[in-house]
Amino acid sequence: MTLRIVVLAKQVPDPETPPSQFKIDESTNSVLPPNGVPPVVNGFDLNAVEAALQLRDAGADVEITVLSVGSEFVMDAMKKPLAMGADRLVLVDDEGLDRIDAAATVKVLAAAIEKDGPFDLILGGRQASDWDQAHVTLGLAEVLGLPLVSLVQKLELDGDSIALRRVIPDGYQVVSAPTPSVLTITNELGEPRYPNLRGIMQASRKKPEIFSLVDLGLSDSDLSPKLELKRLYVPESNRQVELIEGDDEADSGVKLALRLRKEKLI
């Protein structure tokens, strides 16, 4: 029987955007899209796609659906999971959906999963690199009433359940989860694979399936925020570095140590 996996994926500004290019419009409290730096799929979500593909590589019969909520999707970015090997791309695409909070996002995802499911496994990245909250996947598990394992670094099918390794601060836990479950995947799983040419060709022929809020039986009033964003700004740094210069690099090392001693730091 086919194991249906849905991977949650978010379009985010490229976190590798150079700091000089990172700008905020304080009048709208939003990040200005950096010039010439296209958005990307959140890195940890690609780790989650990789996790699903590893189950397939290990011989499981899996169907991998990538699900995203947002607006102004850039297809070159969003098709990357398809190019890596995912089967389907489902977008909930409606105006303003790129600005809703975690609680509203969970509502939309739950409705989309209700409509497109059932799924045997729900995977998400450990957090998104824009708001850095790590709420959506955890919240979805609560709203759907499903078991949750966060920070998964390794997974294998084991009969009807999944054998997992969960990262903890000084090691890992060995965990067994039933299906369906919700898992968040961390980068310790390993680098997401690069799409090959064949994957890119196949992805270019695939069309995303698109839902609007109305298709999901939701309206704007279901999505009112729990947190009101009052201000978004770039903090000022007024640190001034003292550069230590010696006669050569080795001498700089000596002088650095002496300077730290003088400051009573070592």
Binding site: S237, L243, D248, E249, A250, G253, L260
Partner: peptide, 28 residues
Amino acid sequence: NIFKEARFGVVGDWEKVLPSFLATVRDL
């Protein structure tokens, strides 16, 4: 960017800076 956050710094190759730094710290 690290030099925007640091209080003290050396601009240089760690392979050349670190051994003498370590030796001096050890002496101190």
